[in-house]
Design a protein around this nucleic acid. Structure first.
Length: 404
DNA sequence: CGAGATTCATGTGAAGTATACCTTTAGGCTTAA
DNA sequence: AAGCCTAAAGGTATACTTCACATGAATCTCGTA
């Protein structure tokens, strides 16, 4: 046994990897050039360029579905403009914050707290008045003369949760600042999202708007080819892998991030199986694995109560499929309560469970839509959107996590 | 037979509560002059 | 007298509960043909 392991490690070192540089396929990787996004990048560059002359640029709002290069393009521009500013000694600070990160920036307080931390000052996780945190941010900003570019990624998520007032607060800050100027760049996945905004907020936030259209299959192919050149050794990609990969992604509204991930995971699978080449088979396998890993990741990071609710749904789902009726909130709640008493957990109220169901819906784990069923009242009809083959595994994970 | 009233089971908004955490303040103790 | 520590007081954000009202199609009611 011992020797086995030893030889395994030795082989591992000697084995030639399929990858030349795996980093280049990861989503944080910043390529030297971004292809098929010249138009958008130029537009954004024109809009934010005035900071270099110490003028206040217009606030900017960027729309586009996931994997259309929004985040990448903005980060790319920030990097470049920072470099220029540094070399010409212009005081410019750019902040990038993803509003979706739980426990980091998913409420107004936490967002502003995070901003203050960016300036190197500590803020407690709770306890301070929100106004106070604004003041801290304000004084940190105005400490010296500087221009700030504030990028809020996935802004729609935060606004959906906490309302749009904080945007107004942030845009208004400018009129009180003496030394500095704050420019907001909002990024949203949801095209319709600005329609529900307070008109004041809308007009101040989207002084300029830019839309990132989805990539088509051909463009994704080009992107994949570029990256594949960097990441894989020559000749390890089987004929047709890239075009199949692009086709997959194009089917999903041209999500390039997903395509790259698919390619990377396919490579990892091939490597683990000691293969010389990556073929379409690995690609198919990769698609399943990604889906599964993503779900498992979401589920394991959820709080306990969420897991119990989800487990109840899965239990209900089983019997509902047999008998062909859909899951209702009431039925779900009784199962949930029983489950809670089994594992010695204080059950939450139905009101709260209802909210949790909505949140699980937002994660895409389940599908819950409100249905009025006449005399049979009103309820959510819940269906599970976890792919069939993954469900047993997820059940086991939940069982273990909950100590069942 | 059909228009309007009723009903059901839960959605949903608003306000209240518990908890965990923060700052400020006041009192008590120590220290140094 | 000044400095330091501690505990109590007073305040906040967040997750959750409580209360109360909103929903809207199936079903019922009752007047009419």
């Amino acid at each position: 046994m011992k020797d086995n392991i030893k030889t395994f490690f030795e082989d591992f070192i000697n084995k030639k990897s399929l990858f030349k540089d795996k980093k280049t396929l990861q989503s944080v990787f910043m390529p030297k050039e971004i292809i098929h996004r010249d138009e958008q990048i130029n537009k954004i560059a024109q809009i934010i360029a005035p900071v270099l002359r110490n003028e206040k640029p217009s606030n900017l709002f960027i729309y586009g579905k996931t994997g259309t290069g929004k985040t990448l393009s903005v980060k790319y521009l920030l990097n470049n403009i920072n470099e220029i500013a540094k070399s010409k000694n212009i005081s410019l600070k750019s902040i990038y914050i993803n509003c979706k990160l739980k426990k980091v920036a998913d409420t107004e307080y936490r967002l502003v707290a995070e901003l203050v931390r960016f300036f190197g000052k500590a803020v407690p996780p709770t306890g301070l008045p929100t106004d106070e945190v604004y003041n801290k941010f304000f004084s940190a900003l105005d400490e010296k003369k500087q221009n700030i570019l504030l990028v809020l990624d996935e802004l729609d998520q935060l606004i959906k949760k906490t309302g749009d007032e904080f945007i107004y607060n942030l845009t208004r800050i400018n009129s009180d600042l003496k030394n500095s100027q704050l420019t907001l760049i909002g990024i949203s996945n949801n095209l319709m999202f600005a329609d529900n905004l307070d008109p004041r907020v809308k007009s101040s936030l989207s002084e300029e708007e830019i839309i990132f259209p989805p990539y088509n299959a051909l463009q994704i192919q080009n992107i994949l080819k570029e990256r594949a050149k960097l990441s894989f050794r020559k000749g390890v990609l089987d004929e047709g892998v890239i075009s199949k990969c692009a086709a997959y992604a194009a089917r999903e509204h041209g999500d390039a991030r997903r395509a790259l991930e698919l390619l990377r995971v396919a490579g990892e699978i091939a490597e683990r199986n000691n293969m010389e080449k990556i073929t379409i088979t690995e690609l198919d396998e990769a698609e399943k694995k990604i889906e599964r890993d993503k779900m498992i990741d979401i589920i394991t990071t959820q709080p306990n109560q969420f897991q119990v609710v989800l487990y109840s749904i899965l239990l209900n789902d089983e019997s509902s499929k047999k008998r062909n009726y859909s899951i209702s909130t009431g039925g779900l709640y009784s199962v949930y309560k029983e489950l809670c008493s089994n594992i010695n957990l204080r059950p939450l109220t139905q009101r709260r469970v209802s909210d949790i169901i909505s949140e699980l819906d937002m994660f895409g784990l389940i599908n819950a839509s409100v249905k009025n069923k006449g005399h049979y009242g009103r309820t959510r009809e819940i269906t599970v959107s976890i792919p069939e083959p993954v469900i047993p595994k997820i059940k086991n994970i939940l069982k273990e996590d909950l100590g069942l």
